[in-house]
Design a protein around this nucleic acid. Structure first.
Lengths: 139, 139
DNA sequence: TTTCTTATTGAAAAACGTTTTCAATAATTA
DNA sequence: TAATTATTGAAAACGTTTTTCAATAAGAAA
């Protein structure tokens, strides 16, 4: 998965490849921290000065729609985005530096079954996120 | 835990008991659905007409500060609040009617240990939330 | 290429949700 | 009962996100 692949995906869905979209895609793709629209705007404008904030919003919207990025929910806010994980993955966030990592291998089947029985709910999905200190920030 | 107890808590922390705060507290306490500030405002104004939206925001802020309510993160938005769970509890949300339930008994120790080892992170906390259909909405 | 069609653009304005400011009011203290 | 001071609602300010719109540029067709 490369930034160029994201552009292909956009193209395959009938969207045009523009300098503005390239700048936004290049900025979020490969970012190690979740970025808010304004952070994307500031960073992407270093690559393409004429970029407008509105276009950032519109591009983020399309990338989210294609599941190439996903919103990151944090105690301080829920406006930031990060490249989406592939398959069934969850987020691990560093509380100090904000670094984002993905992990998989959560097995919640026993839990969801037990909760379903107790509550009468039919469980459809779950949302799991871990917070802590990354190797760098621990030191 | 009663609505009156919430007011006591406010009082014990130096806050005054007013008609406006009573209306807000009575509205969120015991709600089965997470409520946004405007929803609280609309509902609470039926009990106390002169209530202002600003006071709703200010009261919610204090209730959250005292851990009596908590913010609910949902795909559609993260502005809604619900009475906080006691101890280590997580949320279960009905995707259709929005009903909120708490559950406990999640054991993520094995998982967090494994992730910590793999990533080098020191895991400090976790967010877990289940989504599904409540008994009523299944039928 | 060149022309044509139409999606995309940035700027400005509008629309939100939330916070701040402020004088009037009402809850607690003396 | 009087004095103090937190609290109030309205208005204004604020930050974020969306809509509107004429100009532009991407991609398709020739």
């Amino acid at each position: 998965m490369t930034a160029e692949h994201w552009l292909e995906q956009l193209h395959d869905h009938g969207y045009r490849i523009t300098a503005a979209r390239r700048a936004v895609v290049d900025t979020i793709f490969g970012a190690t921290h979740a970025l808010t629209p304004i952070q994307v705007y500031d960073a992407a404008r270093k690559k393409y000065r004429a970029l407008g904030l509105v276009t950032v919003y519109r591009t983020l919207e399309k990338l989210e729609e294609l599941h190439l990025i996903q919103r990151v929910h944090q105690p301080m806010g829920c406006q930031a985005f990060i490249a989406a994980g592939v398959g069934h993955q969850h987020l691990l966030l560093c509380q100090q530096c904000g670094q984002v990592e993905f992990f998989e291998g959560d097995d919640l089947e026993a839990l969801t079954k037990s909760i379903a029985k107790k509550t009468g709910y039919q469980i459809k999905e779950h949302w799991l996120q871990l917070f802590g200190l990354c190797a760098n920030c621990r030191a």
